[in-house]
Write a protein that binds this DNA or RNA. Sequence first.
DNA 1: CTAGAGCTTGACGTCGACGTCAGGGTCAAG
DNA 2: CTTGACCCTGACGTCGACGTCAAGCTCTAG
Lengths: 139, 139
Amino acid sequence: MRIGELAKRTGVSPRALRYYEQQGLLHPERRPSGYREYGERDVRTVHGIRTLLAAGLHSAVIGELLSGLPLPGERPPGPTCPELLTGLARERARITETIRELTEARGLLDEIAAAAAPGEMITAPRPEPFSARRAPRRS
Amino acid sequence: MRIGELAKRTGVSPRALRYYEQQGLLHPERRPSGYREYGERDVRTVHGIRTLLAAGLHSAVIGELLSGLPLPGERPPGPTCPELLTGLARERARITETIRELTEARGLLDEIAAAAAPGEMITAPRPEPFSARRAPRRS
DNA sequence: CTAGAGCTTGACGTCGACGTCAGGGTCAAG
DNA sequence: CTTGACCCTGACGTCGACGTCAAGCTCTAG
């Protein structure tokens, strides 16, 4: 399929698809005319790329993962498996930490909402917004 | 305290603190010399700001939250409470969605790790990397 | 008094994943 | 053959939260 169709099927703009190729994440074939020709698996690849990008991985890192991936039977050059696993673990840890931060921030928003909402919910010694909270029991 | 001390106590650079003020997130007093003078609660405020920034909230939004916050007793001007709550809900939903995406991405990394790791773990009909997965049973 | 650390404002630089525009081929339908 | 949709390669623009550098004022210790 050509770039337009892949774009529709993935919800990603053609510009972004060309960018992914430029970063070494996609390797479409070329027609004599110069048009890019994509295969079915590219649809999945793009979804994977989007998922990892959404998680904050840099395209260069995603490129390493893809190029470092031992496809059935072969040992690819470039980053060795140990290095791949190291980077993998690093990103995994970063994601886990980010989830923690997000959870914390969400709790903060809830506190703010509770403080901002009309006294329906809380009328007692109203907890002040985070800018002046009394130590929330955190060591 | 002056900006340097607040920077040390929060782990945030002086440049960032000035930026927060410029965005209306902090309102330190000024000495006759022009030096900024911060209070104790600014320490907490800064931590809150960092938490929300880490969660992807724009400084402008954080500013609305802070300025829209009804401090004990007063009704501030600007964005009304309903609007505040709306924005609050929107950001909350965004955070929840982001957590979902992160969780998904982490799962993907685990799959890649499983595929990349030496056959110790899996030797059976090895699951291919995400770029060529067989439909993972998702509708 | 003087040095040095710390503070001020102002302004330009950075990084990443694209958006957008310009100028120009390709291709299938009518 | 022509039109219109689609594609190509540059190349510059964007947005946000700061980093960094410049030029100059302030404060404190010796």
